[in-house]
Design a protein around this nucleic acid. Structure first.
Lengths: 136, 136
DNA sequence: TCCTACGATGGACGGATTCCAAGTCAAGAA
DNA sequence: TTCTTGACTTGGAATCCGTCCATCGTAGGA
């Protein structure tokens, strides 16, 4: 994730302790934290960091394409640092665990022209739902 | 949608003016209203109807499988009366308009076994995003 | 027509997110 | 190194979405 900080600086980001901590917290695979969870972990490293800053930073990272927003339920949004490799999500209906998955083929290709209603279609997000081994 | 009311009565539903109005408001194709929008339209026909009743009724319709809940963004849930024909959604990134679409093939089939992590996968929801003709 | 259990009401509540005015500080200039 | 300034952070208020609850009303069977 240190590449990220370098990349952000290259884009004119002011490198603050708060932003560094948020970026560190989001490091890893299959990470899908809510803003509150990011804040809770950030506070461990930087006790004064405010929730507003966490929201601001997450929003900026999303705007820059460095982090994906995931809305798998009607509740809190989750943030996924795995934004550079295309992937979809598999969600457990029991416990809510999320895994990154890579389906075969391109879901975009499955939408025929006559089903596009003149839209310029850019992306396809797939959410698979099922029961995970722990909940079964 | 009159079938719906008949069906619901068959399931032991008490048929109140409020429930009838909510069902009427949800009639049509490509309808994806938020609970608040449903309430606003219901009030036109039945001024005393409360938000709580709209939420209750929508929740019941979802539980009965007569209406689908759609979460295309991290904001308000939307309610889709087209629950009996399987379909996916195409969302305009500009104005938020939603169309029901039917991709070719079954998205579930695209998830290979080794990408299922032991989950019993049951459903796949696809959200296509792009720019609609009006916003282009 | 009467009863009563189910449904409706609206106001309080709670979680998630955004907004805002005031204070702070990273980083380039001197 | 110090200065300067505009970008960043802060915390609390505000907003939006949804749920809960005690009370009142009524659909539909007896």
């Amino acid at each position: 994730m240190s590449d990220l900080l370098v990349r952000l600086r290259g884009r004119g980001w002011r490198l603050t302790a708060q932003r560094r901590v948020v970026a560190e917290v989001l490091d890893g695979d299959h990470v899908h934290l809510t803003a509150d969870e990011v804040h809770a972990r950030a506070v461990q490293r930087l006790p004064e960091i405010s929730r507003a800053t966490v929201y601001n930073t997450l929003g900026e990272l999303v705007g820059l394409g460095e982090v994906m927003e995931v809305a798998t339920d009607g509740r809190a949004r989750r943030y996924d640092p795995n934004a550079h490799r295309p992937h979809q999500h598999l969600v457990c209906s029991g416990c809510g665990t999320i895994r990154d998955v890579q389906p075969a083929g391109d879901p975009l290709a499955d939408l025929p022209a006559e089903q596009r209603f003149g839209f310029a279609v850019a992306t396809a997000e797939v959410t698979y739902r099922g029961i995970c081994p722990d909940c079964a």
